[in-house]
Design a protein around this nucleic acid. Structure first.
Length: 527
DNA sequence: ATAGGGTTAG
């Protein structure tokens, strides 16, 4: 008996080593499926089968070339999955496009009496954040406390990051302070990011200064915080002070410039990055392309596109959208379409940008045709889609189509119009000279008209010579916003257009009298 | 037995 069981074990070990070698050799789903088939057909002992299935599950669920749906099937066919298998699936879902699956599996795990461990929670909490299920996240926090896993720094950091993500910085800080003996550089950095994302940039800086040590990521987080908060000069100071820069540092700073509308600085820094010998990453490229779009710099945009092609960067959905947006804004709608058609994955923003690009170049019919296509085979349009469509119709004078779009928005997609949508409609009617209809529309609106909306109407009155009505509306507007110089200018310009010079002079005096500063206009300050 | 986090984009 002893002899025979020993033999079985030896045989198993022998089999195990061959199979382990085979497992080490597989690197894609095709090979994995072959091995899976082999496992099903052979009569390995159950322990070995279980071991091998675990290996397959890990690859299918979490590796880059895996396939979560296959992992799901695999998992569902296992009678008694181990806690490790549950953890693997929870992690797999957390890095998929359906992170809610993690939560379902966690519940299932508890129902089956399988105990979670410290590896369960980081991914589970991450999934809660990704789905914005913060209430569930808090419940899970109580599980963490109950099971005593808050001594694990990974769990702690994910909790801090969850509370930061839902803007509850007091809770984030409480976790940080209660676990002060386990926190590390990542916890500090998470807190810095959390505060700077919630408008607490000074608190963020305080934590940054108090950190026992800093690395490049912590510096990057602080620079990003300043850049996001519009304090671009401070961001740059810190960027220059950094003891060491990595690709993300450059990327953070370039995106800061680009998003603050400082497109020239963004381009300059991008060039500096490349000449310093750094290979830009996708996000730096996106910011640079977007800077070209702002500057209407087609040549530089095309240079970047070539650079991307030459270096064989994967054009992901964000980079692709940035590129077609750039081509659209720079007036090359053909190239925009070329990029659009080549993109294997498109999302709402991709479609929105392409539609806007077509409108911008006067191709209203094609823009509407693309919207038709989007409704048939694209992602569901969102409120931004409709702002783009209505603005486009307004600029091209497509009044009838604009009305249709508004109806589609409210009736088909049940999207409640926001102030912006009403503004577009008023603009659409006003520009077309349908001032009465525009006023009717304003009266029927269920929301309080925004000052800018009256402004659009006054401009329309100027263009279409409805001076009396314009005057009435303009005065009403000045009452609403007496400190806004632009409101006076609307009336002044209208009187000038109607050759009513006395009234123009009267407006000038009024401007002086009220000490309303005239907006000197926008100018880009070169650093 | 096996494993994990913080910065950057349209």
């Amino acid at each position: 008996m002893a002899f025979s069981s020993n033999l079985t074990r030896k045989l198993a070990l022998l089999q195990q080593s061959t199979i382990t070698q085979a497992l080490n050799a597989f690197s894609n789903m095709f090979e994995l499926k072959q091995i899976h088939a082999h496992i099903i057909k052979s009569d390995f002992n159950p322990d070995l089968k279980f071991f091998l299935t675990t290996r397959l599950l890990v690859f299918a669920a979490i590796s880059n070339s895996g396939e979560l749906s296959y992992a799901k099937t695999l998992f569902n066919n296992i009678k008694y999955p181990s806690h490790f298998m549950y953890n693997t699936m929870i992690r797999g879902y957390s890095q998929s496009n359906q992170p809610i699956g993690s939560i379902h599996l966690y519940v299932q795990m508890l129902q089956k009496g399988i105990f979670p461990d410290k590896f369960t929670y980081p991914f589970l909490i991450r999934s809660c954040c990704l789905c914005s299920l913060f209430l569930i996240g808090k419940q899970i926090h109580s599980h963490v406390l109950k099971f005593g896993f808050c001594l694990d720094v990974y769990v702690v950091n994910n909790l801090i990051s969850m509370y930061s993500g839902c803007g509850e910085l007091d809770n984030a800080r409480n976790v940080f302070e209660e676990c002060f003996n386990v926190v590390d550089i990542v916890s500090w950095t998470t807190l810095v990011t959390g505060y700077s994302n919630s408008g607490g940039i000074d608190v963020a800086r305080k934590y940054f200064d108090e950190m026992p040590q800093r690395n490049t990521v912590s510096w990057n987080a602080m620079v990003a915080g300043y850049a996001r908060g519009g304090q671009i000069v401070k961001a740059r100071e810190l960027f220059d002070e950094m003891p060491e820069k990595d690709v993300a540092s450059w990327s953070v700073m370039i995106s800061g410039y680009s998003q603050s509308g400082m497109a020239k600085e963004a381009m300059g820094l991008f060039q500096e990055m490349v000449s310093t010998g750094f290979m830009p990453n996708e996000s730096a490229l996106v910011s640079a392309v977007s800077a070209c779009a702002q500057l209407r710099a087609l040549d530089q945009g095309e240079w970047l596109h070539n650079y991307i092609k030459e270096h064989m960067f994967e054009v992901n959905v964000i980079l692709g959208t940035a590129l077609l947006d750039m081509y659209g804004k720079c007036g090359n709608v053909e190239k925009a379409f070329l990029v659009f058609n080549k993109m294997p994955i498109k999302n709402v923003m991709t479609w929105n940008s392409m539609i806007a690009g077509l409108f911008l170049n006067g191709c209203g019919k094609q823009a509407l045709a693309l919207f038709e296509q989007m409704q048939k085979m694209g992602p569901p349009p969102n409120n931004i889609t409709f702002i783009g469509l209505l603005t486009g119709c307004s600029h091209l004078g497509m009044v009838h189509e604009g009305h249709q779009i508004f109806n589609i928005m409210t009736q088909v997609y049940k999207i409640k119009p926001q102030l912006e949508h009403y503004g577009c409609m008023v603009d659409l009617l006003g520009r077309a000279g349908l001032i009465k209809e525009a006023l009717d529309f304003v009266e029927k609106m269920p929301v309080e008209p925004h000052p800018g909306l009256w402004g659009a109407l006054v401009s329309a009155c100027r263009i279409h010579g409805e001076i009396e009505l314009g005057e009435e509306l303009g005065k009403h507007l000045i009452k609403l916003e007496p400190q806004h110089s632009g409101r006076y200018m609307l009336l002044l310009n209208m009187f000038a257009a109607a050759n009513r010079w006395d009234d123009v002079a009267r407006m000038r005096n009024l401007l002086k009298e009220k000490k309303v500063l005239k907006n000197p206009g926008n100018s880009i300050i070169k650093l």
